[in-house]
């Protein structure tokens, strides 16, 4: 066990999986010799050769299409889409092709493919480089979507995604790439469909996703000083959602705040709230409250961006709201 940065954990997962299985190969813009725009694939082309670590033209749709064909023949391609916003360019290949290939061939096709992409958080990347678009994907049967909230998750979930026989989209967070923590060496695989309790608490459950797990933990720390005990759940997976873990927590707290950096409207939180409203209404002592981005594009200038994308303060306010008598 050693301290590793998030981006290093990604690199380690890729390297170990390529070592373990010759069918694993990487595709993407600048993933080869340059080592990826964020360094996630650094050293891998040198190690595994230009056939398995392949630089591609800026042809995102075709590259995901290539991965579909290659996966059908038994490769396990990992495609890097540089920014999550660019998923808009590959939506046909993801939604109409990858997601349905197994189903519409009546089970003839098996599609072990991974799309790695990343979004950010309050780093002035501007309207076309900072969106959290996971809800687009979670609406589509046939895709799995995970959002690693830290270095351990970055390694463990990516390894699981590569070993999964379905299309999995892994949404990393570039603003966490430099974050370091202890990450187990070697075979460390986390299940794709299990949420994790990051902090135990009694009064309120905060179900959070991606970078907002960090904000939720910070909010819980502040609230603890005020005598409020929060249970923080890292959903890890946006689809499938681990309702069971959240429900079990609600049995204890009876209050729920959901936090993600994506637009609140139509976000994953809306689905979670609706599902728990249907299944766990009787457990709730207060309305479920969602924290998410306001309904606007994400602006460039820091004060504007802060006005749109929420942080720990918004979570604290939401917790206070669900605790209000």
């Amino acid at each position: 066990m050693a301290e590793k940065r998030y981006v290093r954990a990604v690199n380690e997962a890729l390297c170990e999986e390529m070592e373990r299985d010759p069918a694993v190969c990487l595709l993407g813009v600048d993933v080869g010799a340059p080592g990826g725009p964020f360094g996630a694939t650094r050293g891998l082309q040198e190690r595994f050769g230009p056939q398995r670590v392949r630089d591609t033209p800026i042809s995102e749709a075709a590259v995901v299409g290539l991965a579909i064909g290659a996966a059908t023949l038994g490769l396990r391609p990992v495609v890097e889409i540089m920014f999550m916003d660019f998923l808009a360019l590959v939506m046909d290949q993801l939604v109409n092709q990858a997601a349905k290939m197994r189903y519409m061939t009546g089970g003839q096709a098996k599609l072990p493919l991974v799309v790695r992409t990343q979004t950010g958080y309050r780093d002035s990347a501007g309207p076309q480089h900072a969106q959290s678009l996971e809800a687009w994907l979670t609406h589509v049967p046939g895709l799995k979507v995970v959002m690693p909230s830290g270095p351990c998750e970055a390694k463990g979930l990516l390894k699981a995604a590569i070993r999964d026989d379905n299309p999995v989209i892994v949404v990393e967070n570039r603003t966490l790439y430099a974050l370091a923590e202890e990450v187990p060496d070697g075979d460390y695989v986390l299940p794709l469909e299990r949420a994790a309790i990051k902090r135990e608490g009694r009064d309120v459950t905060i179900a959070s996703l991606g970078v907002m797990v960090r904000e939720a933990l910070a909010a819980a720390e502040t609230l603890a000083e005020r005598g409020i005990s929060c249970e923080v759940i890292d959903l890890r997976s946006a689809n499938p959602l681990d309702l069971q873990t959240v429900r079990a927590s609600l049995e204890k707290t009876n209050r729920l705040v959901i936090a993600h950096s994506a637009t609140r409207c139509g976000g994953v939180g809306a689905e979670l709230a609706a599902a728990l409203g249907e299944e766990a209404f009787y457990m709730l002592d207060a309305p479920i409250t969602r924290v998410g981005a306001a309904f606007a594009p994400i602006p460039f200038s820091p004060p504007l961006e802060r006005a749109i994308v929420p942080d720990r303060t918004a979570i604290i306010a939401a917790v206070e709201q669900v605790l209000a008598p």
Partner: peptide
């Protein structure tokens, strides 16, 4: 079209 190219790449 890219699926066929991907199959070709795998081959």
């Amino acid at each position: 079209l890219p699926h066929a190219a991907g199959a070709a790449w795998a081959l």
